[in-house]
Each structure stands twice: as C-alpha cells, then as structure tokens.
C-alpha cells in the first residue's frame, strides 16, 4: 500500500481567462511536512482551498488519503484540519468555549469533546489560557489556539496557511517545535510560509510555485541542487592592494559562466562555479603561488531563499 496521503494530479484552476493554478502535480507521504512556497498570488491558497474542499478544480484531481477532494467534500472535512491565514475569532468567547464550539460543529460528542479539548490544549500548550477571551490573545497565542482547533477532530492531514506569520522569534521556535512534534505523531502537514529559512528547518519536502505553475518539487536537498547547481565561493585577502592582483589571477582561470565580483572595501572576491574540489584546490594553489596573502577561501552556503529567488526572479 502506498504511503502517499496527499496527492494532486495535473491540478488546474481557472477563473475566466485567468489561470490561478496550472497543471500542479505533487504528493506528500504520511508524517512528512511539505513546505509550500510561492510569492503572493502564486496559487498556494487556491491549492489549499481545493485540498480542503472549499474550491473545485477546473481539471485534474486532488486526493487526501485516497478520498477525492471535490467529489467527497464532507469526508475531506473530517480528514483535514485547516488553519487559514485569518484566525477567525469571535467576540466575548473564551478559548475553552471556542474550542468547544468547533468540537461541536465537527460532531464530537460531549464527553469525548471535553477530553479532546484538554488533550489538544496540552499538546499546543494552551491550557493556561483557556479562560482568556480569544480576541484578547496575542498573535502567537491565537496561532496556538488555531492549531489546537485544527487538531480537535484528530485529522490525518493539517494544512496551515502562514502559521509563523507575525510571530516573534521565541513564538516561532515554539511553533517549529510544535509542527515537528505533530509530524512525529504521524500527522501529515502542508505549511505555507514566507519565512523560508523557517521552512527549510522543518520540511521534508518542498514545492515552489510561481504564477500557478510548479517550479520545483522534492526534498530540500533535491530542490537546492536542481535550482542552485552552482556553488558560490568567496576569497578574502589580507589587504586592499591585493584585491586587484587576485582578480587578475582568478580572471585567467574562470570562464564567462563564472562571473567574478570584487569588493575592495570588504577585501573579498566572489564567483559562482561548478568546479570540482580538485579544480578549486588548484585555483587556490595559483593564488598562493602568485604570492597573494589569502586569509579565507570558502564556499558560501545557499539556502531555500536563494532557490526561491532563482525561480521567482525569472517571472
């Protein structure tokens, strides 16, 4: 039996002449966290709405645990816990009453609901705020309550739209730990975020969409190697007068596909390359042989942000 829980095949959604989503095919396995990345208007929310059963695709299909999202929306609602980017608070309602209401509309019977509310409050560390009015909570607290709400009916899949948005660093770390904890419990998570370093720390799989099209999909390493095949190197010299001579040596070796930039103020030179380790060692040797006082020769690490920018910049 396949372990794929969430799957979209050639998913397309058009609004009149505008194509919001174009032929999107992704799959997420049980216990994985998918980081869904894209600029505003890329089609992330459209995809999420289709997965949650709030929107119907123009063509293609989306399934969760084998259930078609557009054909069997009522079953999908039991399988998915959805946290939109807008919290959805009510005036004069305490956290406990709020969770009780959502438990009731998900059809959880009285006693089981009471126990379940305690359980999700403990999981999300919200027990201490159960008597607080929902609208009086800080943004970070509301996000925790939002996750507690999505967990109430014990769904297999959690879809969280911008859960780390507007959180302070401490709340962001707590949120990251909570999401990892949920994945460890076997939940499958789809998380959208604009804070990409945040996503790269927790996601097993990443999907990058721009203008409705899937640009990259796979594990973080796979996406990085497919989108950022070149590595960037930085050479630092001891003083400013050696920047020019270092540049001359490097230009003799580097090709046109390896554009060199220098910064005398920072005493550095940078270039992207696909050279092997041996070739790079030879390059360093030439610099040393030219009596250039090299203080650092190091690889600049690329991250998800670079990968995203390499795709987003093309649109």
């Amino acid at each position: 039996m396949s372990d794929t829980v969430v799957e979209t095949k050639n998913l397309t959604k058009t609004y009149g002449a505008f194509t919001a989503l174009n032929d999107l095919s992704i799959h997420v396995n049980r216990g994985q966290i998918l980081g869904f990345i894209g600029p505003n208007g890329a089609g992330k929310t459209t995809t999420i709405k289709i997965l949650v059963g709030l929107s119907k695709p123009t063509s293609g299909s989306a399934t969760i645990a084998g259930v078609d999202c557009s054909q069997n929306a009522s079953k999908i609602k039991q399988l998915v816990g959805y946290m939109p980017d807008k919290f959805g608070s009510y005036d004069n309602m305490r956290v406990h009453e709020y969770l009780d209401f959502f438990g009731a509309i998900f059809g959880i019977p009285g006693k089981a609901r009471k126990a379940r509310i305690q359980e999700v409050m403990e999981t999300t560390n919200t027990t201490y705020m159960q008597d607080r009015y929902v609208e009086s909570l800080s943004h970070g607290m509301q996000q925790r309550v939002g996750i507690a709400r999505t967990l109430l009916h014990n769904p297999e899949v959690l879809i969280l739209d911008e859960p780390a948005n507007g959180l302070d660093p401490k709340a962001r770390i707590e949120m990251r730990q909570l999401l990892l904890q949920l994945a460890a419990q076997g939940k499958t998570l789809i998380v959208t975020s604009h804070i990409l370093p945040e996503l790269s720390r927790i996601c097993n799989v990443v999907a990058i969409v721009t203008a409705g099209k899937l640009r990259a999909f796979g594990s973080v390493d796979e996406v990085m190697s497919s989108l950022c095949p070149q590595r960037s190197y930085e050479v630092q010299v001891a003083n400013a007068e050696h920047v020019g001579s270092a540049e001359r040596v490097l230009r003799e070796v580097l090709s046109e596909t390896e554009p060199l930039t220098s910064s005398p103020a920072e005493l550095t030179l940078r270039f992207p390359t696909v050279r092997t380790e041996a070739e790079l060692a030879d390059l360093l040797h030439k610099l040393v042989a030219a009596k250039i006082p090299v203080t650092q020769f190091r690889e600049l690490t690329s991250d998800l942000e670079d990968a995203f920018l390499s795709v987003a910049g093309k649109d």
Partner: peptide
Amino acid sequence: ESGGWQLMRASPI
C-alpha cells in the same frame, strides 16, 4: 468579516 465563515465552511456542519 471575522473569518469564522471560512472555518465553518471547512467543517462538516
């Protein structure tokens, strides 16, 4: 306006 409608739509009620 509050976003509660979206949540109700995502529930089986």
